[in-house]
């Protein structure tokens, strides 16, 4: 069985910090049109900001796709971040609060995980990283 079925889909190339803002806007637009609460929007868009920035900082560039998804009559938003960067050596370490390889606060990846209902990460050293986050609308 495949994951949740996808309806609307949008791909954005993220190569610089201005693209990060664009990625945030696109995720927010879809959530607004789906009627997500302002808090849900803020949390998800903050996670999008962290993950889109990670692609720029660690991989130089990447792709984000924003999709509206459905499972068991529940509507949701899904964002997939895919890069061909160096990958992550130790995921547990990378997800830990305060861990950073780039002189940042180290809240990005772990923070994004905490902000979303669903978080999935697949990474291969030397090949790249793919992070999927989802948020479901409460009825």
């Amino acid at each position: 069985m495949k994951g949740p079925s996808s309806k609307d889909s949008l791909d954005i190339s993220v190569a610089n910090y201005e693209d990060v803002i664009l990625a945030r806007q696109k995720a927010r637009e879809l959530m607004q049109s789906m009627g997500f609460s302002l808090l849900a929007q803020t949390r998800m868009v903050t996670a999008v900001s962290e993950l889109a920035r990670n692609m720029v900082v660690h991989a130089g560039r990447g792709q984000m796709s924003v999709n509206s998804v459905e499972k068991l009559n529940q509507k949701g938003i899904e964002c997939i971040f895919q890069d061909k960067g160096p990958g992550i050596q130790n995921i547990d370490q990378a997800l830990r609060q305060g861990f950073s390889t780039s002189n940042s606060l180290g809240l990005g990846l772990g923070g994004a995980k905490k902000l979303c209902a669903e978080f999935d990460i697949q990474t291969t050293v030397g090949k790249g990283t793919r992070v999927t986050i989802r948020e479901w609308k409460t009825r």
Binding site: L39, T42, T46, L107
Partner: peptide, 14 residues
């Protein structure tokens, strides 16, 4: 600071 921003910041760990 908006309340949604504040709630998100705390969840983020900042």
């Amino acid at each position: 600071m908006k309340k949604e921003v504040v709630m998100t910041l705390l969840q983020l760990g900042l």
